[in-house]
Design a protein around this nucleic acid. Structure first.
Length: 367
DNA sequence: GAGACGTGGCG
DNA sequence: TCGCCAAGTCT
């Protein structure tokens, strides 16, 4: 790696973040949870609840995916007290489709701590925020800087990429992360740290993109060492990942004569924790059949394919009529035709339903 | 430190 | 079709 102590841009940190903030003042993307630089300059402050909610939703998730979820959440639960008072199942259903469901469970935990123990006020320091459920180093720094104007350093995938390129650092992630964090810290300004944090992330999201970075219009095109070296598109380096294995499984759709569905609430820990799903086999190389009750299970034909973070899944789907008077086992729920909403399911489970809905087994298919 | 943990878009 | 990638956290 280069001798970072002698990089000129570090000594020019003031000029650098001035260039970035000027760019941000003219190019900040509008988002429902964001106070524009102009409004911020007039003294308007962001609502910590909305900053927190948006940052949790944005963990490993794109702005485009988050926007409508954020609108629905804030419309339904305008304050942290409202959210803290919500039922678990309602929050999980509203989160369905957004992924990483541990975030939703921790969101509720955190809301209840803030509402019940902290008088409804989010802590305003990095250290105190870090103690809350679902808030890690990134989110604590983001809330502290954006909502409370603390000079904390955010380090997400965008900032890592920007720092690696600005300093032309070729050492692979994640090992080099502490170095990138240090470089990001040297650039964090005492004034407007919140706008600065959002500016670096906007830069990474719109200009300094993973592929085809738009170096020609970058506010940091002049000091950027990777642009000079021509290495920007290949940075940051990452240690190669293991290929994903493929697992198999069977999902069982049981429908009563009046159109109610048999579902299961999954355990809080593990994959799709706390979410509704169809009864099914285990997911592995050779799953044993595990129907929720004995019946003539009919194969729907076709299959559901879905890829999780660490494996591919191919699901076979079987169907049977739920006998009248079926006794619900622990964890099972019978949802009436009226109460069942496929959009409340995690995506893989919704795909299973969609396979049935488009099949000849659906009496209302063409209506 | 490394693996678990979702999903959708893009090239 | 497929691998990469996204405003990470928890264990």
């Amino acid at each position: 790696m280069r001798d970072l102590d002698k990089t000129p841009e570090v000594e020019d940190s003031s000029a650098l973040n001035q260039q970035l903030l000027t760019w941000y003042d003219h190019n900040a993307r509008a988002m429902p949870w964001r106070v524009s630089p102009a409004d911020r300059a007039r003294g308007q402050r962001p609502d910590p609840y909305r900053v927190w909610l948006s940052e949790v939703m944005l963990q490993q998730t794109t702005v485009a995916a988050v926007t409508e979820y954020f609108q629905r959440f804030t419309q339904r639960w305008p304050s942290v007290q409202d959210l803290a008072a919500a039922e678990d199942a309602q929050v999980m259903a509203e989160w369905a489709g957004l992924g990483y469901y541990a975030r939703a469970r921790n969101l509720l935990k955190c809301a209840r701590v803030v509402a019940q123990d902290l008088d409804g006020c989010f802590p305003d320091s990095y250290e105190a925020l870090l103690k809350l459920p679902g808030i890690g180093p990134y989110t604590a720094a983001a809330i502290a800087s954006i909502a409370f104007d603390r000079a904390e350093t955010v380090l997400d995938g965008n900032v890592e990429r920007v720092m690696a390129r600005l300093h032309d650092i070729h050492d692979p992630l994640p090992a080099v992360k502490p170095v990138l964090k240090e470089q990001a810290g040297l650039l964090t300004p005492p004034l407007r740290p919140g706008d600065y944090a959002q500016a670096v992330m906007d830069l990474g999201a719109t200009i300094c993109t993973p592929k085809n970075p738009a170096c020609g219009i970058c506010p940091w095109r002049s000091p950027c060492l990777a642009r000079v070296a021509g290495t920007a598109p290949e940075l940051p380096k990452k240690t190669p990942k293991q290929p994903k294995p493929t697992r198999l499984g069977v999902a069982y759709l049981a429908r009563s004569a009046d159109g109610a569905w048999l579902l299961e609430r999954r355990p809080d820990k593990g994959l799709l924790g706390g979410m509704l799903g169809w009864p099914g086999s285990e997911w592995n190389a050779a799953p044993a059949p595990r129907p929720p009750f004995a019946a003539e299970w009919q194969d729907l034909g076709g299959e559901v394919r879905h890829t999780f973070t660490h494996f591919h899944l191919i699901l076979q789907v079987k169907l049977a009529e739920l006998p009248t008077g079926h006794n619900l086992l622990p964890g099972q729920e019978l949802l009436s035709r009226h109460d069942f909403r496929p959009q409340d399911l995690p995506t893989v489970m919704r795909k299973v339903f969609d396979l049935w809905a488009g099949s000849d087994f659906n009496p209302g298919k063409d209506r």
